[in-house]
Design a protein around this nucleic acid. Structure first.
Lengths: 150, 150
DNA sequence: TATTATTAAGATAAAATACTCTTAAAACTT
DNA sequence: AAGTTTTAAGAGTATTTTATCTTAATAATA
């Protein structure tokens, strides 16, 4: 698997929040229901993104989380780094510590290329841009497809 | 992580065997020592590749494993499929079961591209070809770099 | 002020992955 | 035939990831 489950959940939640209107806090319960993710588990992941400044949270009635300004302008790459860390984008495909262009593993050269194509894919569009596009394209965010970008 | 540890160990062992001369069985103990992988764990992984017909094994003194003809002409892709299964090359990046070109997730289109670039990277060269190339380029297979393609 | 709705945080549990140990089976050597 | 070297197979342990449960803290509302 390319990304951990935590990471995938975090990305889906970020994408869920992306089209929401300015300043609105969305409860984690709503997201865990709509996205079919365990509430407490999702809470943990979003706490991490909040700690990283990519989201903001608010307690109490009408509380919830929202993308911070930083988060809105962030890309999925930033979310992945915050949750899974940078290993996928820095490590040798065979996990060899000394691997590099001087003394490469058999996969090194092609993996460097492929790796940056993954990176570019995740960096290409900001959440704000995906949200805009999503409203036209009705992207899927759930298994059942019952999510609307409004 | 792109590939499981089992898978990486299996690939490194396959690459270790690739340049060995025709018909020679290499003991798993030698490989586990040279590649710095737990003997019993590596044994399990190689049993899988043997069951899949990618390797052949022989018991008793001077026994060990070697690439089968199928294995020699196989690519790293085949090894990955045998160990990790096809999920990486078939699944949605966000793990959404219904995702496809009709109702895609936000990553679908770019992920389809990236996914096949990973696939192509692993399919590009057969183990036999990598072995040949390795003798010129002295590819790394260990953390310490103490592996020689002779 | 009491109640309720919410996130935060910590403890626990379950599942998956990674690793180890023991015994059995096969094949060689003497 | 007995002993040795090797893979095979199964059970067991450890670690990490995923998920749940409980309690605390914060903020709104009545």
């Amino acid at each position: 698997m390319l990304l951990s489950k935590s990471c995938v959940y975090g990305l889906r939640a970020s994408l869920y929040l992306a089209p929401k209107k300015e300043g609105e806090f969305i409860s984690i319960r709503e997201m865990s229901d709509k996205l079919d993710i365990s509430f407490h588990f999702l809470t943990k992941i979003l706490q991490q993104l909040t700690a990283d400044g990519l989201m903001e949270s608010y307690k109490g009635p009408n509380g919830g989380v929202k993308l911070s300004n930083k988060g809105k302008n962030a890309t999925l790459f930033d979310m992945v780094i915050a949750i899974d860390g940078p290993a996928l984008f820095t490590q040798c495909a065979l996990g060899l510590p000394g691997c590099g262009s001087e003394e490469p593993c058999p996969l090194h050269d092609s993996w460097v290329d492929t790796r940056s194509s993954i990176e570019n894919m995740l960096k290409k569009t900001s959440l704000a841009e995906i949200a805009k596009e999503g409203k036209e394209k009705h992207f899927r965010l759930t298994a059942s497809g019952n999510f609307s970008w409004k």
